[in-house]
């Protein structure tokens, strides 16, 4: 009984994490400019990591593996804001202006931005 409950919880958590990752990838392709894409990338760093690793931790029982999974979560949570801040700050200093305002609905299709 306990086993089945844990399995169902793992299924739900891993599926939710996978769905969130797909949305993240979709957002990376779809959103209009760099600053908005940073938000999409941050989604993979936070909740998707948390969901997938907690789902795996439910399967491992109480062992060193669980501790390692939690350590990876803590590590990603501590480092990911630093790297996204560094990225946003570097591009801001380099003079990249964010698109602001109400009605810049994203019109670009993948493949339409050939600016090599």
């Amino acid at each position: 009984m306990m086993e089945i409950g844990l399995d169902i919880a793992t299924w739900i958590l891993l599926m939710a994490g996978g769905l969130l990752l797909l949305i993240t990838g979709f957002g990376l392709l779809r959103l209009p400019d760099l600053y908005t894409r940073i938000h999409a990338g941050g989604m993979a760093d936070t909740l998707a990591t948390f969901l997938i690793f907690v789902g795996l931790a439910l399967q491992s029982g109480f062992s060193l593996v669980t501790v390692k999974l939690l350590l990876v979560i803590v590590f990603v949570f501590f480092t990911s804001p630093t790297s996204s801040y560094a990225l946003a700050q570097a591009s801001f200093v380099a003079g990249l202006k964010p698109k602001l305002g109400e009605d810049d609905a994203p019109q670009e299709e993948p493949g339409a931005t050939e600016r090599e």
Binding site: I23, G27, A40, L47, L100, P106
Partner: peptide, 26 residues
């Protein structure tokens, strides 16, 4: 953690329906 959960739902909605939710501001 609770805040992160709520914010993730917001961003996911924004990615899926950008016309309705996307309002970038600085």
């Amino acid at each position: 953690l609770v805040e992160i959960y709520k914010a993730n739902i917001d961003v996911a909605k924004c990615v899926l329906f950008p016309k309705k939710y996307l309002r970038p501001s600085l």
